[in-house]
Design a protein around this nucleic acid. Structure first.
Length: 841
RNA sequence: GCCCGGGUGGCGAAACUGGUAGACGCACGGGACUUAAAAUCCCGAGUCCGGCGACGGACGUGCCGGUUCGAGUCCGGCCCCGGGCACCA
């Protein structure tokens, strides 16, 4: 039984119905002519089955901003889509014996329904699903364009292989020697033929343009800078000495890369990576087996013992003409520089450890301050003057480097070069659920691209699913067999699919023109909307996704498809939500389920709590009771509104004077809150303080309610302030404000309530007059210590404030007749009376 | 090891440019309403010391020092926590 005349606060009673209405009648862009465009993008989710709290946070942030900007009159583009290819669908297929496609599509339907239930205001007419041929055919199209320009190529090389994924991984997907999806699975090295994107062609530009990304968090640009890892140095050629016991070599030189050419007179050996291609020529089968054992199998680190193998070959130092041994060493990386280095034990710690172990000579060639360094314990890696370096003796390092590079170039023994840590992007995956690579192998013509007219190369649907997994494309004969597009002979299709990071590298362009059947998108539309004004997502994509997306944009620009050099103007990286201090995960059993929260507290309270708990860039720990607090707050707003539907007509602008102190207080508090929220939304997005301001205002409404009933506040002022409260809450709790408006519209007189949804109103301007305090609390300090608080007019002059402070009896007593050495007056804030310099009370 | 963040009540936090430390909320305690409970509404609260008491005093933003009339905020040094990278020659 209920004794309330009006129904209590029950979000369940109205949120689902409003969500339905919004689905049918979206807040689609109907901007005023000339409205500024704003492309607001949130990272699209992988359709794993249901939203998790990380999604809710990401999308609650984005939606608050979208709603605010729309009310501000912007033409907001706010799309959503699905990153729908990838391995989990195959794993689920194994578990449930279902095909990845229905599993994925069912997940999408469920998550989309959840998003609607949360009230996220996406423009679903632009929805993109990457596993559909309408989307992935453009992946293939881009692949072909890149192939034409030499940006997609095939090579045999050492690659990262995850035994759990049963596929190859890009370098970017291997962290610390383990798979990014299977942190307990060491990655193996295998030599395979793979497709690559030549991202290194853009390394320099990708690095340089980081300086222009002023709207990105510095730590993200720093991570990318380190990832690209540009280093300047020199490539040097060491001539291999002939050996009587071995056949002559096809190429008698070894190329090394060094950033310290100044130490070249200290070389004790040349070290090759165990995978170095020349080893097949230099070594016999027994020897090669020994070097193969040196290939780092798992995540080896700087702490791993350094091991080597003396090949018996010797090479000649181009500068000193000295003959040094050629070793294979486990710590030399094949995929950096040339896979060979010169070992200078005196001036490189790794070489020092290696040479000490194998008793190779350690000879200093750099002397800091002219004094030979102490090498008894470790290498000296700093700068200094050259010694033991023939004609270069006495030169400082930097001068020596320049002069040595010049000499090497003249002698045709090397040249100055720039090397990058960044590798070409390996995009081949030996999996089913991905974009087929549109290539054909013809016995006569070789590698032949699929002609554009034959796109998309469709993923075959009727594939066997067994407990062992989804059949690899290589096992599906009907897919493989194809006529060569050039000569018509029987040929075979490429059976690798593309890395799913290809999908997410350009999806935000497809939103702009999702139904285009002729091109990935129309250039004119991209010109209008790009770059993305604001991108919001997790920090975990700081490198992979965001560097690939930048690469794609530069390629698209060079293809003439777009005019922008960079895809994203501003980036916001949200913090993580943890539970009991740990990352939420099913295996830990500490997952907070958004669906359960909706059920219990509704969408508004859940969204509002996520925004209230902490500033959005910070991590925060989930607290169940926190949601209840927000639920209570929304109930307070609701009940207040139910008790006081507006009675007076809507009108613009605030009154110029207040009829009573109570009215004065309400008007000030309202405009102070409005100012705080407006300023936050325009700057740093600390939504927690926005909601705090609204809570303070609601507390004042409650405090002044008796005053309204007593007639101490006019209805017009009360109504204005309450309507402003709804408007300022609209970005955060869209259901609540709309439900209140709906009920008001039924009960209030004509013209007292907006005829359209709250969301479609203009964002109100705060009144600077009312937002400014009139009376302040003046703090009086003596020697910097707070001694009194006084009321004072906000417009009082320095002199008036000083006099006021000195006149206070408490201050008089403290001064005891002494003459202040100095008084500091900060108008509107405080007076500090200094008795003597440096005095500490 | 290197590069970023970050340390403020019992907890999440606020203080945006050096000017009242702890707004707002959670948890807690007290009261009103109720037969009772829930819900709701109101009040209290950094810590310590003194006082029956309105109140007064001292201390207080990781630690040590500095600049300043005044430091959570600026500078120097250190400690701790989190994240990223990690044999890149």
């Amino acid at each position: 039984m209920t004794n309330e005349p009006i129904a209590g606060f029950q979000p369940q009673a109205y949120e689902p119905e409003l969500a339905r209405q919004w689905a049918a009648r979206p807040l689609a862009a109907s901007p005023a002519p000339g409205a500024p465009k704003y492309y607001l993008l949130e990272m699209l989710p992988y359709p794993s089955g249901a939203l998790h709290m990380g999604h809710v946070r990401n999308y609650a942030i984005g939606d608050a901003v979208a709603r605010f900007l729309r009310m501000r009159g912007c033409d907001v583009l706010h799309p959503m889509g699905w990153d729908a290819f990838g391995l989990p669908a195959e794993n689920a297929a194994i578990q449930h014996r279902t095909h990845p496609r229905p599993w994925t599509l069912a997940n999408i339907a469920n998550m989309k329904a959840q998003m609607r239930r949360f009230g996220f205001s996406y423009d679903w007419s632009r929805e993109v699903t990457t596993c559909l041929p309408e989307y992935y055919r453009w992946n293939q199209w881009f692949f072909l364009r890149m192939f034409e320009r030499g940006l997609a190529y095939r090579k045999k090389g050492w690659v990262n292989w995850c035994p759990r994924c049963a596929t190859v991984l890009a370098n970017e997907q291997v962290a610390g020697g383990v798979c990014w999806r299977h942190e307990d699975t060491p990655v193996e090295q295998r030599e395979l033929e793979q497709w690559y994107f030549r991202i290194t062609r853009y390394a320099e530009e990708l690095l340089r343009d980081l300086d222009r990304l002023s709207g990105w968090p510095e730590r993200v640009t720093t991570m990318q800078r380190n990832w690209i890892g540009r280093s300047e140095g020199a490539a040097l050629e060491f001539e291999l000495e002939k050996r009587e016991d071995r056949p002559a070599l096809s190429l008698g030189r070894l190329r090394v890369f060094t950033t310290r050419i100044d130490t070249v007179f200290g070389v004790s050996a040349v070290l090759l990576a165990p995978q170095h291609p020349l080893l097949s020529e230099l070594l016999n089968e027994t020897e090669r087996a020994q070097t193969r054992a040196l290939i780092p199998a798992r995540g080896e680190t700087a702490e791993t013992e350094k091991l080597g193998f003396d090949t018996g070959w010797r090479a000649r130092n181009p500068f000193s003409r000295e003959s040094v041994p050629v070793w294979v060493a486990n710590f030399v990386l094949m995929n950096y520089g040339s896979g060979a280095v010169m070992a200078v034990p005196a001036h490189d710690q790794r070489d020092y450890e290696f040479c000490k172990k194998y008793q190779l000579p350690v000879r200093p060639v750099i002397a800091p301050g002219g004094v030979a360094p102490d090498l008894s314990r470790q290498a000296y890696t700093g700068e200094g003057e050259l010694i033991n370096s023939a004609a270069y003796n006495g030169l400082p390092c930097r001068e020596a480097m320049a002069s040595m590079i010049r000499w090497a170039e003249q002698q045709n023994a090397g040249q100055g070069t720039v090397t990058y840590r960044l590798q070409d992007w390996g995009v081949s995956r030996q999996r089913y659920w991905g974009t087929p690579i549109p290539m054909i192998y013809c016995p006569g013509c070789g590698v032949v691209p699929v002609p554009d007219k034959d796109l998309p190369v469709r993923l075959p649907e009727d594939v066997p699913v067994s407990s062992g997994g989804v059949a690899n494309l290589a096992a599906i004969e009907s897919f493989i067999q194809v006529a060569c597009p050039k000569c018509g002979a029987a040929a075979r299709r490429e059976t690798d699919t593309m890395d799913t990071f290809v999908d997410s590298s350009w999806y935000f362009y497809r939103y702009l023109d999702p139904d285009n059947g002729e091109a990935p998108f129309a250039k004119s539309i991209a010109h209008r909307w790009m770059p993305v004004d604001q991108y919001i997502g997790g920090i975990e994509h700081a490198i992979l996704h965001l560097i690939y997306s930048r690469f794609f944009t530069k390629v698209m620009r060079d293809l003439g498809l777009v005019e922008n050099d960079e895809p994203i103007a501003r980036l916001f990286t949200q913090g993580m939500i943890t539970k009991s201090g740990a990352k939420m995960s099913k295996s830990k059993g500490n997952v907070v389920d958004p669906a359960a929260l909706i059920e219990r507290y509704g969408a508004d309270a859940t969204r509002a709590y996520v925004l209230f708990a902490a500033p959005p860039e910070k991590d925060f720990d989930w607290n169940d009771q926190g949601v209840e607090g927000l639920h209570r707050f929304l109930g307070r707003v609701y009940r207040l509104a139910m008790r006081h539907p507006p009675l007076t007509r809507l009108h613009a602008g605030a009154p110029s004077t207040a009829a009573s102190p109570a009215e004065d207080r309400l008007l000030r508090k309202t405009h102070v809150a409005l100012r705080r929220i407006t300023r936050e939304m325009e700057s740093r997005w600390h939504f927690n303080t926005c909601l705090a301001a609204a809570m303070e205002l609601v507390n004042v409404f409650y405090e002044l309610e008796p005053e309204l009933e007593r007639g101490g506040i006019t209805e017009a002022v009360w109504d204005d302030c309450q309507r402003l409260l709804l408007l300022m809450l609209a970005p955060f709790t869209p259901f609540l404000v709309e439900e209140i408006r709906r009920i008001w519209a039924e009960r209030a007189p004509a013209g007292a309530v907006w005829s359209g949804e709250v969301q479609r109103q203009n964002w109100p301007e705060f009144s600077p007059e009312w937002a400014r305090e009139e009376e302040i609390e003046l703090v009086v300090q003596v020697n910097g210590k707070l001694r009194a608080r006084l009321r004072a007019s906000a417009s009082a002059s320095e002199e008036e404030l000083r006099a006021l402070a000195l006149a206070d009896p408490k201050i008089q007593a403290l001064l005891a007749g002494a003459q202040p050495a100095k008084t500091v007056v900060i108008p509107g804030r405080l007076v500090n009376i200094v008795l003597r310099q440096g005095a500490r009370a």
